[in-house]
Amino acid sequence: MITTKSFTLDSPLAIGSLELRNRLIMAPMQQYNGSPEGYATEHHIQHYARSANAVGLIIVESTAVSGNGRLVPNDIGIYSDRHADALKRVTEAVHARHTPLFVQLSHGGRKSDPQVTKRLIAPSAIAYDEIFGKPAQLSVSDIETLIEDYRLAARRSIAAGFDGIEVHAAHGFLIHQFLSPLSNFRTDAYGGTLEGRSKFLQDTLAAIRSETGSQYPVIVRVSSTDYTDGGLNPHELALILKPLEAKGLLDGVDVSSGGLLPTAPTDVHPGYQLPDAAVIKQHLQIPVIAVGKIYTRSFADRIIRDQLADAVAIGRPMLENPDFAQQMLMSPR
């Protein structure tokens, strides 16, 4: 008889070559405390160090790869060596708590904040809404420049001391805009077919891998659905991710949802994104991270035990209470 080992929130988990001490992850959550120039500040040092006591992994908030792709005026970036130097103080503080941390590399595309964006860009000249306005369609040369931005950001991520990278391909930002047929109307190599819409993500991951090598953990955050007919769905995302896994470009997937359009889910209950994570997990061998109001130990253990996901990420409770993860791990199973 073949038996399957039962894992819990306490069980170690390997993401690429990195072994986490448990399967509870601090999700990336915007702090709105970066300097006007996009530098990490003393707030980030204190916040992430304070939150590192119990979690197996911290994923630092959205970190811009370009000064033209910031999500808000007071977010952080990694588009210069000085930005990396500021972030190194964060990684050192978290490592002092014996906790690994990933950086989340992002570009807002058509959802870059108008206050700090000189030129709004997107795969196609389609506005998110009237506030952001109509973006310029990226040329192939523009796309090549953006891929180079990600490559250099990966180099700086290693220099800053991060233990891995999460590529932000969710919530309606640039890579998500390429992936979805609702925002990518291109007819060249970066659009049209599923393969074409996936090309920017694949090329970006390949550029990142050229800096990190195969042993450095690289994961991706995706939106499993656009909450609109004709948009992305978990089955299509699995078709996008599986070739990336096969090529050795990915070590894990962090499953969120929405953000491409001003359309919100109608029912946000505990684990509301979990069914999509479970669908994606069926197609992949790499770890899948579930997120979305999974705030009790018993619920998290059941998700992992039933192999609906390999790890659980929590966000908002950690903003209100840095000890939340420790309390969750110590609560009754």
Rank of each mutant, 00 (worst) to 15 (best):
P234S: 02
V218D: 00
V220L: 09
P36Q: 14
S256T: 15
H43S: 09
L18V: 03
I303D: 02
L13F: 08
S183H: 05
G259S: 10
A127E: 08
G133R: 06
Q327H: 10
D188L: 08
A40R: 01
N321F: 06
A169T: 03
L105H: 02
K88A: 14
L201G: 06
H235R: 15
H107L: 11
F162W: 03
I294F: 08
I25K: 09
L57P: 13
T187P: 05
I303A: 12
A153E: 07
A206D: 06
R197K: 13
I304T: 13
L18R: 09
G69P: 06
G231K: 06
E19N: 05
A290S: 05
S106I: 08
K293P: 01
S210H: 10
V291Y: 04
F185V: 11
V312T: 10
R21C: 10
L174D: 04
T296M: 01
N321M: 04
E144N: 08
P262G: 01
D306H: 15
D129S: 13
V312K: 04
I25Q: 03
V103Y: 13
V268C: 09
G77Q: 01
L87C: 08
L87W: 02
L232H: 11
E144Q: 11
A160L: 05
L261Q: 03
T193G: 10
R316M: 07
N68Q: 12
I303G: 09
Q104V: 08
I2P: 13
V255Y: 05
R155W: 08
V116C: 14
R316S: 06
N184Q: 14
G315Q: 00
L284Q: 01
A207E: 03
D254H: 15
I304W: 03
S224H: 09
E42A: 11
E148V: 14
F299S: 03
S124W: 04
Q104P: 12
T117M: 10
D149I: 00
K281P: 05
V255P: 00
P36E: 15
A136R: 07
R119D: 06
E236L: 14
D75F: 05
V220D: 02
Q30L: 15
S139N: 12
L249F: 00
L9Q: 04
S256C: 13
P270Y: 11
S141L: 15
T41V: 09
G231A: 04
L260K: 08
S214D: 13
I208D: 11
D129T: 10
A153P: 12
